[in-house]
Nucleic acid binder design. Structure first.
Lengths: 197, 197, 197, 197
DNA sequence: CATGAATGAGTTTTCATTCAT
DNA sequence: GATGAATGAAAACTCATTCAT
């Protein structure tokens, strides 16, 4: 997407790069972008300080790389999940479930996304824009098929992003887990709102 | 709420305290928590470095003070707005409008809330918990009056928080402003979801 | 001795000066010269920061004043005690006892003397020189009267200072108290050394 | 003794560590613990500020390291010296001489020991406890062999520490040097006291 | 006499990044 | 490719002292 990482030319190099990347994900997840230090990442990766700069231009860049990668993975799982559905309602249900599963498995890492807004707003925006794009398209298609109301799909996409994010925040991150009823309620909200008339 | 600031005892002191607080709000809004330095805040306030520590224990504390204050103001405006409504639908509409107005007016500052999660998760959680409380109560009351469906009001509260936050993010912070149609669509979403019957 | 303090002209002023002086003694004793702050002293004295500078030129000066005063008191009690004795042996015994009593009562304050060496070596030296003077004279007199050996009384004076100081350090400050046997042994050492014939 | 320093892994690192340590000894000796700053130490060592923290956790730790090292050296020279003696009297004489030599050569550094009491009382106490231990043992052995009187060797040990310290203070630090007569008198005092029969 | 707000120089410490080996 | 010692700018914070009221 953006050429942020330096290229390894050997297999050994590629392996080192991976070690660093994984260590970074773990350390960033644990301490956040500002709380983490390059020293700590390299220590966790089991390489020397200088090695870090052989593969990444700097702390910022590896962080943004991680965010991009995370976005890609998240889009992958949600898209894959909803692709299996026959109806829009079913797609929404499966999509939300996949999202919550992802957030559950990547608790710490998911939270670092928010820090990205200050580190590089462009990357932050891209993260959510690309994610929203799937939602937008699904809504637009459903509308075309008469399965959903005729409303601006872009707005709807961000509404759904919001529902997912805040329900995950409240139940997954604060409470420890999200039960099936809460998940059901969230999906119901996305489909029928608060239930007015 | 939490005793985080030191006490001035004269009017002059109170005035200085205010100057510093306002400068901090401005600088934090512009550069974020980590990007801002105490030096910068005092420079913006027109006082000496040491003066800062006469009124606040440290950078972290003034930041959290600001977040608490922001939460209080935000709860104030949304509650005031929805109090004027006769029906739940109306209350939601007015509440969202008030929220968007607030976010519009406090763009920069509103964004620092997200940084708070890493600085002090307790304060971050309190910010949203207290906000959600109003929404929860409104939903519960509406349900009791037969105006809303019988669903867990806590989940609904966070769904609404999410809708507000992400629509503000997309339209207010990224696009520059949020038009009436988008606002209308968001409210409609909160009331009827994506329109699935 | 040295004109280090500023002069109060009224009775009220004299009272304030005293309050500050006493607070300083206590705070310095507790935290040491460097650990104590002027703010803390004034707080302990119940006066404003500025008031301090009405009576003392600075932190250093009040500290040295305190050291001088302490020396005067210590010389007073040891001299008074040994004046009551008929023989040199008796005078030594009473002098040491008085010294240990003083150290016992002024544990904390006594220890700040050592810090004085770095703050102002002149004052530190004066403290011990004046104290040694009494010992020196007593030894010289005893020699003249045939009660003590014919040795340089100046050296002897410092040996006795050393015995007192280190026994107090070991037993009073570290152990909590100095029993009569230890005191007796110390005195015996001063009179007969390690017991080599 | 206490793991206070960080580890260099190369010869170059070890060399730098030494440079910093030596600079610290010099600067602390000259200005004392509080008068010295890390900046000054690194400047004297010819390294950058940050380098200091590669080898020592902080100013306090390097200071305490220095005190421990000093104690070890001092114990070494006094023990070595007295080990050569046939009698207790001879051992005392040689031990005192070695002590005075050490103090003469390390004037400045020796004086920083006193500051240690406020910086870390434990380390201060250890310094003298370990030193006293040799004296105590020597006295106990001499008593067993009938060479010295039957008195508490612990008290005697501190008496001798005191004699050494204060005679060094008076003659070495204040006067510039300690002549043989004064040294002789001090030793005589340690052996026979003030000469009371 | 007394106050206490204000000052600003000075201190310790951190850490992303560089570079000789 | 890999190392890890070295850098130095920047940060948060303290505190003796001044001075307008």
């Amino acid at each position: 997407m953006t050429a942020r990482s330096l290229s390894p030319s050997t297999a050994r190099g590629e392996a080192t790069r991976q070690k660093v990347l994984e260590a970074a994900e773990q350390v960033f997840g644990e301490k956040g972008y500002h709380g983490a230090s390059v020293t700590e990442i390299t220590r966790a990766a089991g390489v020397a300080q200088g090695t870090f700069y052989l593969y990444f231009p700097g702390k910022k860049e590896i962080f943004l790389d991680l965010v991009d990668a995370l976005g890609e993975r998240l889009r992958g799982v949600t898209l894959d999940a909803s692709a299996k559905a026959a109806t829009y309602a079913e797609a929404q249900r499966l999509g939300f479930s996949a999202f919550f599963d992802f957030a559950r498995t990547h608790r710490h890492v998911y939270r670092i996304i928010q820090e990205c807004d200050r580190v590089d707003p462009i990357t932050y925006r891209r993260f959510y824009s690309l994610l929203a794009e799937s939602y937008r398209r699904a809504q637009a298609d459903a509308t075309a098929r008469g399965e959903a109301a005729e409303v601006d799909p872009e707005v709807v996409a961000y509404c759904m992003l919001g529902v997912g994010h805040f329900v995950a925040l409240r139940y997954l991150f604060w409470d420890g887990d999200l039960g099936p009823e809460a998940e059901e309620t969230a999906i119901r909200f996305a489909q029928k709102g608060v239930g007015l008339d």
